[in-house]
C-alpha cells in the first residue's frame, strides 16, 4: 500500500466517474433520453416560436467549450489553460442577447392580455 498506488487508483476513479457521467449524458442526448424539446424555441403567450438568440448562444457556447478543451489537452505546464482572446466578451454579449430576447418575449406575454382586456 503506497502513495503511488493511491494516485493510480484516484486517477482511474476520476476517469471512470467523470468519463462515465459524460458518456452517459452524451448518449442520453443522442438517444432522446434527455428532453431537448423546444431547446431553440422561446414562448410568447405560451406559444412556441423559433428563437435565433438561442441558436447563437448554443454556437458561442460550443465554440468556447471546444477551444478550452483543446487548450487543456495541449497544456504541459501544470497550470489551468486560459481562454482564447475575446472569448469572455463573446460569451457576455451572447448571453446578453439571449436574455434580452427572453425578457422581451416575457414582457410581451405579460402586457398583451392587459391590452386586450381594455
Amino acid at each position: 500500500m503506497s502513495y503511488s498506488l493511491l494516485i493510480w487508483l484516484a486517477k482511474w476513479e476520476v476517469i471512470l466517474i467523470v468519463g462515465g457521467l459524460a458518456v452517459t449524458i452524451a448518449l442520453r442526448f443522442l438517444t432522446g433520453g434527455i428532453n431537448l424539446n423546444h431547446l431553440l424555441y422561446g414562448r410568447r403567450d405560451g406559444v412556441p416560436y423559433f428563437s435565433p438568440e438561442r441558436v447563437q448562444l448554443l454556437l458561442a457556447t460550443l465554440w468556447i467549450a471546444f477551444q478550452y478543451l483543446l487548450n487543456a489537452v495541449h497544456t504541459v505546464t501544470g497550470q489551468m489553460p486560459t481562454l482564447p482572446n475575446g472569448s469572455l466578451e463573446l460569451l457576455g454579449l451572447s448571453n446578453a442577447l439571449y436574455l434580452g430576447g427572453k425578457g422581451w418575449a416575457a414582457f410581451q406575454s405579460v402586457t398583451t392580455p392587459k391590452k386586450e382586456k381594455t
Binding site: N35, N37, L39, Y41, R54, T61
Partner: peptide, 18 residues
C-alpha cells in the same frame, strides 16, 4: 435525468445546457 436541462413547463433550457 430526462428533465436534466428542462424547465417546469417541459421545454429544454439553453442556460441550463450552457
Amino acid at each position: 435525468i430526462n428533465m436534466l436541462i428542462s424547465e417546469p413547463n417541459g421545454d429544454a433550457s439553453m442556460s441550463r445546457l450552457q
